Every structure is written in structure tokens, then in C-alpha cells.
Simulated scan of single mutants.
Amino acid sequence: MNTLSQAWSWLTDPAHWSGEGGIAQRLTEHLLLTVVCLVLSCLIALPVALVLGHLGRGGALAVNISNIGRAVPTFAVLVLLLLSPIGGYGEWPTIIALVLFAVPPLLTNAYVGMRGVDRDVVRAARGMGMTGRQLLRGVEVPLALPLILTGVRIAAVQLVATATIAALAGGGGLGRIITAGFNLASTPQVVAGAVLVAVLALLVEGVCVLAERLVPAGVRGTAG
């Protein structure tokens, strides 16, 4: 029996899905960690990107600074946080590392989307007497929404794939299945864990693409 067949047998074994440390529990932990990190990343990145995109000042600098984070491996950031005085094993070092990892695509796409809004439309809205807040909420954000959602999709998929590092900090998630497989020298379990992460990432990608398609056609067409 080859490794893929053994991995499939491991995945389809009901004993591996239930109980403490089972696939169901690890999947729930992985999804919860992903959602928490995505929400925190959006709360940090999107307001900054929307305001800077609306003002048209300072956005390029903010995007460049945030993109520096892409050059630093998330694993390295996690190790530094674990070794820092405020670190320690648990969820917070992992959450901080993942949030820093997810901010750049959110910030970049939202800012580019805001600056890509047709300036003639913006000037027309100003000519109608719309305030800055009304312009932001009623014109710029709706027209920039497709690119904003693209940033959310990219960040979500990256978080699903990278959240496996939580296992290295004593956290939960699907990464625990992979690390347990290494500890047991069980290649089928390692492969099964990797397959679970890949399938989950594809499912998240599909859900996000569906959400993007639910954006009203008029908004997508105007923004494009």
C-alpha cells in the first residue's frame, strides 16, 4: 500500500475524527484561529486603507511599509515573539504573527481599490454636495468593494495555509496532526494533515469567490 492509500485510510478512519485531538476538534480550532486573525487583520488594515485611499495621501508609504512584512517569514516572527519577554507558548504569539502576515494584502488591495475609483464619479459626487463621509460610504467604498473582497480572499486563504504554525507554539489546529505525524514517524498522518489543510484552503477560496460574485453586477462593472 503506497503512502497516498495509507493517508486515505487514515483520513477515513472514524476513530481519527472524534474525541480529544480528533480531526473534528482540530478543524474547529483551525477555523476559529483563521476567523479571529482575519477579523483582527481587517479591523487594522481596512480603516487605514479606506481613509488613506479617500484622502489620497500617505497610502503608498503605508502600503510599502506593510509589504516589508512579506519579506519576513511568519515562522521567524513567531519565534521572535515566543522568545520575547511578553511571549510564551499559547495563542497570542501565533495570532500576532498571523495578523501581521494578513495585513499587507488587505491594506494593498483596499487602497488600490479606493484610488482606482473613477475620479469623474468622485468629482460629480462632490459637486452634488456630498460630504467626505457620504462620499466614502456611498460612492468610493461600494465601487472599491470588488478589490477589497479580493484582498480579504487572499488573506483568508493565506491564513488557512499558514495557521498550521500554531502547533509549534503549543496551539491547536490542523498543524497538530502534522506535527504529531512527524513525532510518530507516520508519513501517512503527515500527508493526511497536509491534505486537510489544502482542502480547507480550497473551500475557503471557493466561499470567498462566491461572496465576490454576489457583489451587485453594477458595482463590479463600474469598478472595473
Results as ranks from 00 to 15, higher is better:
residue 10 W to E: 00
residue 10 W to D: 02
residue 15 A to D: 10
residue 16 H to A: 11
residue 19 G to S: 03
residue 20 E to L: 07
residue 20 E to F: 13
residue 21 G to S: 06
residue 23 I to C: 05
residue 25 Q to D: 07
residue 26 R to V: 11
residue 27 L to C: 10
residue 27 L to S: 10
residue 29 E to V: 09
residue 32 L to P: 00
residue 32 L to M: 14
residue 33 L to H: 11
residue 34 T to Q: 10
residue 35 V to L: 11
residue 37 C to E: 09
residue 37 C to W: 01
residue 37 C to Y: 01
residue 38 L to M: 08
residue 39 V to Q: 03
residue 43 L to H: 04
residue 43 L to T: 07
residue 44 I to S: 05
residue 45 A to K: 05
residue 48 V to G: 06
residue 52 L to M: 08
residue 54 H to M: 15
residue 54 H to Q: 13
residue 55 L to V: 15
residue 56 G to R: 05
residue 58 G to E: 06
residue 60 A to D: 15
residue 61 L to G: 13
residue 63 V to Y: 02
residue 66 S to D: 01
residue 66 S to A: 15
residue 69 G to C: 00
residue 70 R to C: 07
residue 71 A to M: 13
residue 72 V to W: 05
residue 74 T to W: 02
residue 75 F to T: 15
residue 75 F to Q: 10
residue 76 A to Y: 07
residue 77 V to R: 06
residue 77 V to Q: 03
residue 81 L to N: 07
residue 81 L to R: 09
residue 81 L to K: 12
residue 82 L to W: 09
residue 84 S to F: 06
residue 84 S to T: 11
residue 85 P to E: 00
residue 86 I to S: 09
residue 86 I to Q: 13
residue 86 I to A: 12
residue 86 I to F: 11
residue 87 G to K: 05
residue 87 G to H: 05
residue 88 G to R: 07
residue 90 G to M: 11
residue 91 E to W: 14
residue 92 W to G: 00
residue 95 I to E: 05
residue 96 I to T: 04
residue 97 A to S: 03
residue 97 A to P: 01
residue 97 A to Y: 02
residue 97 A to V: 05
residue 99 V to E: 01
residue 102 A to D: 03
residue 104 P to V: 05
residue 104 P to Y: 04
residue 104 P to M: 10
residue 108 T to V: 08
residue 111 Y to G: 05
residue 111 Y to M: 08
residue 113 G to P: 01
residue 113 G to K: 09
residue 114 M to D: 09
residue 114 M to H: 08
residue 117 V to L: 12
residue 117 V to S: 05
residue 120 D to M: 13
residue 121 V to K: 13
residue 122 V to E: 11
residue 122 V to W: 08
residue 123 R to V: 14
residue 123 R to L: 12
residue 124 A to E: 08
residue 126 R to D: 15
residue 127 G to V: 03
residue 129 G to F: 03
residue 129 G to E: 01
residue 131 T to R: 08
residue 134 Q to D: 09
residue 135 L to R: 02
residue 135 L to P: 02
residue 136 L to K: 04
residue 136 L to R: 09
residue 140 E to Q: 14
residue 141 V to C: 14
residue 141 V to R: 04
residue 145 L to R: 07
residue 145 L to M: 12
residue 147 L to M: 13
residue 150 T to H: 10
residue 150 T to D: 08
residue 152 V to R: 01
